[in-house]
Amino acid sequence: MLKFPPFKTVATTILSSPYPSFCLPPKSPFTRFPSLTVATVLFRPFSTLDMGDDSGMDAVQRRLMFEDECILVDENDKVVGHDTKYNCHLMEKIEKENLLHRAFSVFLFNSKHELLLQQRSATKVTFPLVWTNTCCSHPLYRETELIDENALGVRNAAQRKLLDELGIPAEDVPVDQFTPLGRILYKAPSDGKWGEHELDYLLFIVRDVGVNPNPDEVKDVKYVNAEELKELVRKADAGEEGLKLSPWFRLIVDNFLYEWWDRVHKGTLPEAVDMKTIHKLT
């Protein structure tokens, strides 16, 4: 059994050094957000939820759940801290602590203006096997993905996850080619334990790309036109073929997608940009 020094000793060691190398890298996000102190982050009260008891969880997903640190924000999208992906998706903690984290949803269109969809893998902790937009994930609590100016941190994260999930090389999706169109805030339970509570950036990009899906993340992919998507929505509503759509994707489809898609065809997408409003959707 591993043995750790007493809590008091650990605290003394951390705080006695003005710059502990293992927790504050040279370009630390703490320099960008001075209100997030070392003591605040390291001494957040522990609970049994922090460690988890999910022995049956897929090994890759479990590693990501505990290694990835999501960006916690308030309802105005101001950064207020960070926490593990695991904690951010536990409905118990979402409800008790009102945990809200930053996320993004990528909508990638090819030169024929068809939208790339993915079916999430069976091993995903939240919403396995549902169909959704091209890529849905989170910017992480790291310097390159905390940059607020022109949503650059979110765009950097989108580029990273398109490679991780779909094998799309960074050079195929330059960060300056993403159009951040808006933000939504929503909450959605996945099952009795897991769920989402996200402030979601909606990113559009039109590029012809090579796709090589990662089976740990993605079960299937397909390009659809608007009419084909409407048929998928009809089937999901009717419960046909066991087809399900992710709740965030369905909210975006119902509120924005077809109008924006039409603008992609017309070349007027920049006219739809609204990054000042945070749309609270249910």
Score class of each variant (00 low, 15 high):
1 M>Y: 01
1 M>F: 00
1 M>E: 12
5 P>D: 04
5 P>C: 04
6 P>I: 06
7 F>I: 08
9 T>D: 13
9 T>Q: 14
9 T>M: 10
13 T>Y: 04
15 L>G: 04
17 S>G: 10
18 P>C: 11
19 Y>R: 14
21 S>P: 00
23 C>W: 00
24 L>Q: 14
25 P>T: 01
26 P>D: 15
31 T>Y: 11
32 R>W: 10
35 S>K: 12
39 A>S: 13
40 T>K: 15
42 L>S: 06
47 S>R: 04
49 L>W: 01
50 D>N: 07
53 D>F: 06
54 D>F: 06
59 A>F: 13
59 A>Q: 14
62 R>G: 09
63 R>F: 07
64 L>M: 07
65 M>A: 12
68 D>E: 15
68 D>S: 05
69 E>N: 08
73 V>I: 08
75 E>K: 12
75 E>D: 15
76 N>I: 00
78 K>L: 07
82 H>Q: 06
83 D>K: 00
85 K>S: 02
88 C>D: 02
89 H>P: 01
90 L>W: 01
93 K>W: 00
95 E>F: 00
97 E>T: 00
98 N>H: 08
100 L>V: 04
100 L>K: 00
100 L>F: 03
103 A>G: 06
107 F>Q: 07
107 F>A: 09
108 L>I: 05
110 N>K: 02
110 N>H: 03
111 S>A: 12
113 H>E: 09
113 H>W: 04
119 Q>E: 12
124 K>P: 03
125 V>Y: 09
126 T>V: 13
126 T>P: 01
128 P>G: 06
133 N>S: 11
135 C>Q: 10
136 C>G: 05
136 C>E: 09
140 L>K: 03
143 E>M: 08
143 E>C: 03
146 L>Y: 02
146 L>E: 02
149 E>Q: 08
152 L>F: 05
152 L>P: 02
153 G>L: 08
154 V>S: 10
154 V>R: 04
155 R>T: 05
157 A>R: 03
158 A>V: 03
163 L>W: 10
166 L>H: 09
166 L>E: 13
167 G>F: 05
167 G>I: 06
169 P>K: 07
169 P>W: 01
171 E>W: 02
174 P>H: 08
175 V>H: 05
175 V>Y: 05
176 D>V: 03
176 D>R: 06
177 Q>F: 08
177 Q>V: 08
177 Q>I: 04
178 F>M: 12
179 T>M: 13
182 G>T: 10
182 G>L: 12
183 R>I: 11
184 I>A: 10
185 L>G: 03
187 K>W: 09
188 A>V: 05
189 P>L: 04
190 S>Q: 10
194 W>E: 11
201 Y>L: 12
203 L>W: 10
203 L>N: 07
204 F>Y: 15
204 F>T: 08
206 V>M: 11
208 D>Q: 11
209 V>Q: 14
210 G>N: 14
211 V>E: 06
214 N>D: 15
216 D>A: 10
217 E>L: 00
219 K>H: 07
225 N>D: 15
225 N>Y: 05
226 A>E: 15
228 E>N: 04
231 E>S: 11
233 V>Q: 01
240 E>C: 02
249 F>L: 11
252 I>C: 12
265 H>N: 12
268 T>Q: 07
269 L>D: 10
269 L>T: 01
270 P>E: 11
273 V>D: 15
274 D>Q: 07
274 D>L: 06
275 M>N: 15
279 H>L: 08
